[in-house]
Amino acid sequence: MGFISFIQNNSGLVLEYTLNHISLVLTVLVLSLGLWIITGLIISRHDRLAGAVISLSNILFCIPSISLFGLFMAVPGLGLGRNTAVLVLVIYAMMPLVRSVYLGVKSVDYFVMEAGKGMGMTPSQILFRIQIPMAWPTVFAGIRVSVVLITGIATMATFIGEKTLGRLIHQGITRGNADMIIAGAVIVSLIALLLDYIMGRIEKKVISPGLRYRTND
């Protein structure tokens, strides 16, 4: 258990990297949720746009993260550091989030919406009172995937100067220090698990019990 003593001996450094990692992930999460949920909702109403946006998100998702960090670093005005890191991670969150919002809204039962319309709900009332609440289970699945994904890819931001836990892993590799690598990896995993757990708790609060146990009884 050498990595525990590594953490104990370097607690100041580890704490700094950890907090920085978490703050990067949370910043990205807030921006992504705002941006991509709205994008998902918009494309759910414009089918032609939806195809293009989802294809784009797939392509972006397929680019290796290290090359994307490198590319954006070279863009004037972005450079090394947090701005580039945030931008790249937001791009990675696009695919799971946009797709889950789109699918969630699109998979709402036609007859439920038809009943809502027939009772005199306006299109925006149908969106906010029927489509969005019914899409939550799918959307939350997407959010939880994104959270784990962002936490993992955030380690790569070390190459453009972000002091994330990736730095422990990277330096551990260059110095051949296994304890250092394990310390970084374990803390990253713990952060991912913790955020996922928190998301799970929020999910329980947000999603109606009527949607949680479907058609099994």
């Binding site: 439920v112 809502g116 029927i130 019914m134 999603i207 009527g210």
Partner: peptide, 17 residues
């Protein structure tokens, strides 16, 4: 539509309510 009751075979109850 708010002044006309509407019932369909599929019922269309909102499952989350």
């Amino acid at each position: 539509r708010r002044t006309i009751g509407y019932v369909i075979q599929q019922i269309g109850l909102l499952p989350h309510k």
